[in-house]
Design a protein around this nucleic acid. Structure first.
Lengths: 194, 194
DNA sequence: GGTTTTGTATCACGCGTGTGATATTTCCTG
DNA sequence: CAGGAAATATCACACGCGTGATACAAAACC
């Protein structure tokens, strides 16, 4: 019964269901039938908003990425002074990007899944490389504020550390606990900028 | 025509085909039919050695892991003196674990694929966590030889860095080039142990 | 009020998959 | 030489999938 519905809300409802499925079963677990069931909708309704399977996944991942980006931009404005305040700022940025609680763990899972999938599925490459570029920019700025010698190399190192910690936290390859993540990040930041 | 064949050689031939498929299409691309075609064998022959799909993938990944472990143990014996020699030793260990050339890139791809898959597929958990444990042990020992203050935390950090660099090197999430990997690893080791 | 648009709901098709069952061929053993 | 084991090769089945086509209901528009 097609009651007039807000399309954006509907799309969000569907992408939320897709995100839950990615967390539960991985990107490969996202099928029209499962998404429709998870969203309590008919397959036809889902297909009315998302033509094909990859469009849906990309939309879902983009929504999750925007959510992370929104949290980051809502952080305190970058400190100009390069002291302990700048270090604290970098740490709070890192805390947003890493699976410390359930919400951020779900986001880390989604990122890891789509990054891994993007290796063989070109449809995911644009959104993944855009996220990498955004992360790199944020890290370079935060590192520069601290006064790091070579911000570009350090940003690559820090991006690798974040990705790897996330990967090792959400998989049996490490089973890294939140406390360990925090300890590692603090140890890392402590060695930065002299 | 069942010519008498060495079973181990046959198994290896099949797992090699499976590994090529993982690199080309990911874990999800490993099906009996594709593996049989890649190995120039009949499906029945493949199934004669590997009962089900996950057994095959686990065997293939285990073979690749053993190959990496073999390379590591073939390195020079751990130096007892904790100076620049110990640092060089750690660097040569890291060079073996990271996608610097085609061979190691393929191995990194396989690891990333199965680690990601192990999150939702319990069948892959044992081999993945065993690999993580082996890596952790190697890193702790190398770091201790250097004289690092807290080898356990530093091993978690270094393991995360390796995983993340590998992930970002083999996917569009970074497209990190070999030179960048080397630079990051050298910068990281330079900050270790005081 | 008739028409168009928007959303919901099914059906059927072809494809690739794992898997069970089963021949058929070849070699080794007794 | 007989028999059994090992290996190879097919067949058929049910399953879940994306997708195209299509029907139907309700709101919106003119």
């Amino acid at each position: 019964m097609p009651v007039r519905i807000d399309p954006d809300e509907r799309r969000r409802h569907v992408t939320d269901a897709a995100l839950r499925l990615i967390v539960a079963e991985g990107v490969a677990g996202v099928t029209f039938r499962k998404v429709a069931a998870e969203a309590r909708l008919n397959i036809g309704s889902v297909r009315h908003y998302f033509a094909d399977h990859e469009t849906l996944v990309v939309a879902a991942v983009t929504a999750a990425g925007d959510r992370m980006g929104g949290r980051l931009s809502r952080l305190s404005a970058p400190e100009r002074c390069g002291g302990d305040a700048a270090r604290d700022h970098l740490l709070s940025v890192l805390d947003e990007l890493v699976p410390l609680d359930e919400e951020r763990r779900a986001e880390a899972v989604i990122l890891v899944e789509v990054i891994a999938a993007s290796r063989t599925n070109p449809a995911f490459a644009p959104v993944v490389s855009r996220m990498a570029a955004d992360l790199h920019a944020v890290l370079v700025e935060a590192l520069s504020t601290i006064g790091t010698a070579r911000p570009e190399t350090e940003a690559v190192r820090l991006a690798g550390l974040i990705s790897g910690l996330s990967l090792n936290a959400v998989t049996p390859h490490g089973d890294v606990a939140p406390d360990a993540i925090r300890a590692v990040l603090r140890a890392h930041v402590a060695t930065l900028g002299r």
